[in-house]
Design a protein around this nucleic acid. Sequence first.
DNA 1: CGGTGGTTTGATCAAAATCAAGTGAGGTGG
DNA 2: CCACCTCACTTGATTTTGATCAAACCACCG
Lengths: 238, 238
Amino acid sequence: MKTAFIRKLRTHARLDDDDVSALEHMPVTVKEIGHHEAIVREGDRPTQCCLIMEGFACRSKTTENGQRQILSIHISGDIPDLQSLHLKTMDHDLTTLSNCRAGFISHETIRSLTRQRPNIADALWRETLVDAAVFREWIVNVGRRSASQRMAHLVMELRERLKVVGLSTDARFELPMSQHDIADALGLTPVHVNRVIMALRRDGVLEFRRHVVALGDAERLIELGEFDDLYLHQDPVS
Amino acid sequence: MKTAFIRKLRTHARLDDDDVSALEHMPVTVKEIGHHEAIVREGDRPTQCCLIMEGFACRSKTTENGQRQILSIHISGDIPDLQSLHLKTMDHDLTTLSNCRAGFISHETIRSLTRQRPNIADALWRETLVDAAVFREWIVNVGRRSASQRMAHLVMELRERLKVVGLSTDARFELPMSQHDIADALGLTPVHVNRVIMALRRDGVLEFRRHVVALGDAERLIELGEFDDLYLHQDPVS
DNA sequence: CGGTGGTTTGATCAAAATCAAGTGAGGTGG
DNA sequence: CCACCTCACTTGATTTTGATCAAACCACCG
């Protein structure tokens, strides 16, 4: 059940059959994790990486006065702590948002794969670079966009990324986050996020109830959030 | 004159003498670039990477209504567009802040180095991961910190990074940015940045005049900006 | 049936944006 | 050498956005 992950790598990077078979045979320890549980914490020195197979997780940091900032949201096929392969100490937390099934792959396994198969090294490196591209876009989101723009942008990003792994249609997708979680992702307060959601709902642009997002007017959301999917670098390898 | 770069790689990653000599002998085209000039632009498909040898540069995006958000600041020894090796299309601009001397290295050169020397591949990969760690911290900065905290944090980040390449003492460093540039880095308006700087100056915490930052009270700045250098991952290789 | 966590609403407040008008230093040309 | 121009910085008045504080409300669950 690491197909989402392998499929993603193959779409963006050149992998031959041996590469794919090496990935398919690498040892993975699968674990079920409850919602709102820490996978790794700031300060930890992990010896393995975590592949999300089902459910949602997020990376976050917490300021001294207890405010949380979510840094990215992760879905099936993502390895959110791949950077721990080269950066020994975690500089942020990785936490589940929903119940998750996750596969753990030891650093040794990954390191020997990257040493023996440069294509895999490149593919994994590329994944971390797309992560970074998403971080950049999030800096713009919290730095320069209004509350409703941030919300629109987040929704469109998640729709695009979920579509790739078959978890979103054009019109709706599941999003197991509370309004409080969304506030932490957008750098806002939960109260204000609620007002934004109410307004978007009133205008028929967006519904968000019981953990499902329904898009009333995707065009409007793209325009409002100034969403351009270039930064997701989803183009298939030439 | 790519010593800053090689020294940085060696501090953080395991490189043997052959690796270092390969880096020293790779072909680099040096160019002088004026201030406020674009090196690469969003939408470009570069075939080379840019090594900053002297001066300051920044990555940025501009929103539809013309607001700029600076995503990172780059100094001697940085390769700000290393990601272009794997992400074909630039999703942001790379611009000089001051006059710069920059070295250009073709993708082919880098690719053949990484294929022949896995240590170099790892070292470069790690560099892009540190970049990403800085992006994460910036998300927290613009998402959750007040204007004066953001300013304090930026100043401390730059001091730490500049110290590594010998361009900062504990007390002062050159920073060729206008208050407008700083506003674009902090997600604020120039007017408000000015008020913050005035306040910090009045309290004797910070001076910033004619492109030099003088720290009146570094302790206070660290505390105010909640600065913890963990995210810079400057620890030397074990 | 009462508890609990998430959502909704209202009233007030604070931080930063906006608008507008100086100031001041360095650089250029007469 | 001085007048003037420009760009960056500074200051003040006002407005806006989103934060804060506080209190319901509501659905689900044990």
